[in-house]
Design a protein around this nucleic acid. Structure first.
Length: 348
DNA sequence: CGACGGGACGC
DNA sequence: CGACGGGACGC
């Protein structure tokens, strides 16, 4: 739904901003949203360095707890790398998130506090309807309608996405400028959308940093009892293990000692096409859990992939699921072989 | 059929 | 009735 559709980021601040000395919007600076909670700054840098040389990378964290706020900034040296990052990384699925990559707007006071909370929407109002209602008042950065059903999140490649759950009649609209949001409140709060019978409420949304619902001291409770893994891909159905316990895998010598290097589990991926780039490995493994780094091994002369690569994942359980799911997976016209790394090498 | 980088003593 | 996202502009 949000991966490809509404993310039109056309940088155009027509001078409405106050005089922050020549705010040429950077063509190298990106904002990355909807990052997985566990993703570190180094992992973000690793991901974006697969596109080109990164000038700087910053993950925004809560100043008190240090917890990731789920977004960050990546600045490239070259504008073409930033553009490529948007084209290849926007919409990438990492763990239970779909990241968004877009140009960062110039930092300014005028863009803060431009998020609106809207309630009383007709249940049949779509996201597009909502945007149409608010677009006369300014440039919409994001929009969203809350739904009841959270579990069904299917992607339909090709655009025709359908609504998984019923609308709660509540949504959000983030404008580019606060003044735009203010005007939308004045013009739309208390009005009745055509086709509806009740008035809508339009007001500023709560500040995310303030809605701390009680103190969650139980940070050590079953971190991920159940996580839904859904690869971007249709998993190979033929090779399917019933109850693959970790113990079995260990017993089957699927766990060579050097697969684990300090932090993380190194996975060997074989039968990659010569043109394979790093983002392919991110796409393959990202949905299964925390990925620390990926590497495509290339021939030094031709710069083509030598047919294999490595992926380091943080958690053993997630690595096991990724291996089971991707080993035997057909990528293009090649059947991948995926396993924990061994210590084979020319020197061994 | 082929098959397991590369960089690395670090405040 | 109220409802607060997938922590969105440098924490």
């Amino acid at each position: 739904m949000m991966a490809n559709g509404m993310d039109t980021v056309v940088q155009q601040n027509g001078g409405a901003t106050l005089g922050q000395a020549s705010q040429e919007e950077s063509k190298t600076n990106l904002i990355v949203n909807y990052l997985p909670q566990s993703m570190t700054q180094d992992e973000i840098r690793s991901l974006f360095s697969s596109i080109g040389e990164v000038e700087s990378c910053k993950l925004i964290r809560d100043k008190l707890t240090g917890q990731s706020l789920g977004y960050g900034f990546v600045n490239y040296h070259r504008p073409e790398d930033a553009e490529k990052a948007i084209n290849t990384l926007n919409g990438l699925r990492l763990q239970n998130k779909t990241i968004k990559v877009s140009y960062a707007r110039p930092s300014s006071e005028a863009i803060k506090g431009a998020n609106l909370y809207v309630s009383g929407l007709p249940k049949n109002m779509t996201q597009q309807d909502l945007e149409n209602l608010f677009s006369p008042y300014g440039r919409i950065i994001t929009s969203r309608i809350l739904c009841d059903n959270i579990t069904v999140r299917q992607f339909v490649t090709g655009g025709g996405d359908y609504l998984p759950g019923l609308s709660k009649g509540v949504g959000f609209i983030r404008f580019d400028q606060r003044v735009e949001a203010e005007r939308a409140i004045q013009e739309l709060n208390g009005t009745i959308p055509k086709g509806s019978s009740e008035p809508i409420t339009v007001k500023f949304a709560n500040n995310p940093s303030n809605n701390n619902k009680a103190i969650p001291p139980l940070a050590y409770l079953a971190p991920q009892a159940t996580r839904r893994y859904g690869g971007p891909i249709h998993h190979p159905t033929g090779r399917f293990r019933y109850s693959p316990l970790a113990g079995d895998l260990l017993a089957n010598s699927m766990l060579p000692g050097n697969a684990m290097n300090g932090s993380g589990w190194c996975i060997f991926v074989y039968n990659l096409a010569p043109e394979t780039e790093e983002n392919v490995l991110w796409q393959l493994f990202g949905p299964f859990g925390a990925v620390q780094s990926v590497k495509v091994i290339r021939d030094l002369q031709t710069n083509k992939c030598k047919g294999f690569g490595f992926v380091t994942m943080t958690n053993y359980d997630e690595a096991v699921v990724a291996i089971q799911s991707l080993n035997g997976y057909t990528l293009g016209n090649r059947v991948l072989q995926v396993s924990f790394k061994t210590n084979k090498s020319k020197a061994a």
